[in-house]
Structure formats: C-alpha cells, structure tokens
Design a protein around this nucleic acid. Structure first.
Ligand SMILES: [Mn+2]
Ligand SMILES: [Mn+2]
Ligand SMILES: [Zn+2]
Ligand SMILES: [Zn+2]
Lengths: 151, 151
DNA sequence: CGCCTTATTGCAAAAGGTTTGCAATAAGAA
DNA sequence: TTCTTATTGCAAACCTTTTGCAATAAGGCG
C-alpha cells in the first residue's frame, strides 16, 4: 500500500508461481498460496515445521505442508536441502534455474548464508570418470561460527 | 588360521581399538567389541540397523548400538556420515586421523565408493573470510549412477 | 451462475529413526 | 572374590515424515 512499486512486484511474483502450478494442472488452494507466500518472503531454506508456524492459526495442516513440498519439489519449484539436523529444508527456486547451490551455517545459532561457490566441475567430472559413474552431482554445505557467535 | 600374517594383523587392529577405549576409561564389553569388529571389516559407512543385522543373533540391543556409536563419535573413533536417506552412517577412523572424507553413492543400488578429493581449501578459506565465519568445514557427498546400474 | 468430477485437505494413525528411564547385569579395580 | 558403578536390555517416548480415509472445495462445463 505504502509502496506501489514493491507491492506490484510481489504480486507479480506470486502470480508467476501460481501460473506455474496451473500450467502443471495443479489447483491453487488456500494452503498452497499461503505456503508459497511464506517461501517467497524467506531467502533461506525453511523446515516444514517453520513454514507451519509462520502460517496464520489453523491455515493449514502440517501433513498438507509435507504434501505440498513433495509436489513443489517434483515440479522443480523448490529445492530440498539437508543441514544434517534431521529435518528437511526447502527453498523456492526461480524458473529456468535448477536451484543447485550451497549454504554456510552457523553451528551455534543456526544462521544461514547463501553460498554461490560450487565444487569444481572438472574435479567432479574426474571423480565420475575414475569410478565409471554417470549423472554425478553433489550435496555440499559449509559449517562454522558466524561473526555474532564469535563475540 | 590359514593366514598367520593377516590374522595377527587383524588382532592387533582390534587391540588398538580396545586400548584406545581403555585409555579413555571406557569398558570393553561384549557388544562394543562385536560392534568394532564389524566396523573394522567394512570399508564403507554402516547404519546402526546394518550393524545390528550383521551382529550374531541377540548379541546386543539396537539401543546399545546407538549409545555405542554416540560414544565412539565423541571419542573421534568413528565418523558420522549422512547420505540423505534419513539414517546416520558410521565409519571407523584411524588414530591421528580426523576422518574427514567423502563418498560417491549410486542412487539406484546404493553402492558406495570412497572419495579422497576434497573441496579446495583456498576456496573454503575465502568463503569463511568473506562472511566472517571461523572454524569452517564442510559436508560433501557425490551422487550418480554406478557402472553396474548403467547396464 | 450452479453442478460435477475429482484433486486436495484435515485428522488420526502409522511408520521409520533415534533417544531415554530404569532396573538388572557385568567390567574392572581393589 | 567382592565391590562399585558403567553399561546393557527392554519398553516407552520422541520427532520427522508418510499414509488411509472421509469430507471439502477448486476448476471445468453446461
Ligand atoms: Mn539457499
Ligand atoms: Mn568412507
Ligand atoms: Zn555445488
Ligand atoms: Zn572435504
């Protein structure tokens, strides 16, 4: 309301997401729109429980979130990440983007930084070739102590 | 029996493990010896359930294995790995070795190859510095289709 | 706009993996 | 051998994720 430009921008993004669902013959439901809205406003991966608690009171069941994330992952609209704490995390992926990237996570406060650097392609290719594997990819996350937690 | 050299070698290794426990004031129990014996004969990470099923009938309870692996991890005698399938895996670590390494896992048959290549140190240092993190390390695993599963 | 079909949801139960409390057991010291 | 106390087995609890099923509602169609 107080910023027409930004408001329009956000509305378009949500529309892009829902149109992507429509294109795949998926229904735009209240819970799904609410979940996308939350993901859209978070730059880092969220657990299903975190999404659940961000949702307005009784907006949607936890099981529905689990099912929604499974579907969004299958459509390539979210990327699943594993920080090693036993709960899957999901992050929205832009169209025409495979979502492959990494994170730097504080082991004290769990704060997260997006990391664009990736494992060197040529080394990965060498690992694949050496062992006769095809379609090789990787899962990689960094862990350390963030600036705040060092104080 | 049929190979004195190898036999001696194995016995020494188990002795090295138990002496390491003794040094840390931990008791050498039947279950612990049996677990170490299994880990010692497996070159790749094992889940607790896998260790359990390798164990002779009623040799030890699953909960005991969970407790043993926690202890061994704390002592740095095993390294925990996460292949992203929801079950922790453990691999024996040699003394004076921090156990840091990686794997290439077949997404069809789950076969595992040890990978010695690591993420480039200088790039990791740069990621740490850029974001003001200290004590940065990483978790990295590769996934693909193994030679057998390509046929 | 209202009806129909059927995907989607809520709820509750179940399914793994992992942890924990407690009484019984046994390792290692004396 | 005895004694102390870490360790074990067992059962229950915990946590995340999945699933069955009847009720609900989205979107297509007349
Ligand atoms: Mn991210
Ligand atoms: Mn290994
Ligand atoms: Zn990468
Ligand atoms: Zn490494």
């Amino acid at each position: 309301m107080h910023c027409q430009h930004r408001h329009t921008h956000e509305r378009q993004e949500l529309a892009a997401l829902t149109s992507r669902l429509r294109r795949e013959d998926r229904k735009i439901t209240g819970p799904r729109a609410a979940i996308l809205e939350i993901l859209r406003h978070h730059p880092h991966p969220l657990t299903n429980k975190e999404i659940f608690s961000e949702l307005p009171e009784g907006e949607c069941d936890l099981a529905t979130i689990y099912r929604a994330m499974q579907m969004l992952e299958k459509l390539g609209m979210v990327q699943r990440f594993d920080f090693g704490d036993g709960a899957a995390r999901f992050e929205l992926v832009g169209e025409g983007n495979n979502g492959h990237h990494h994170h730097l996570i504080c082991t004290r406060c769990a704060s997260v930084v997006e990391v664009q650097k990736c494992f060197p392609e040529e080394v990965e290719r060498e690992i694949a070739k050496t062992n006769g594997f095809t379609g090789v990819t990787h899962r990689l996350e960094f862990f350390g102590i963030c600036p705040d937690c060092q104080k």
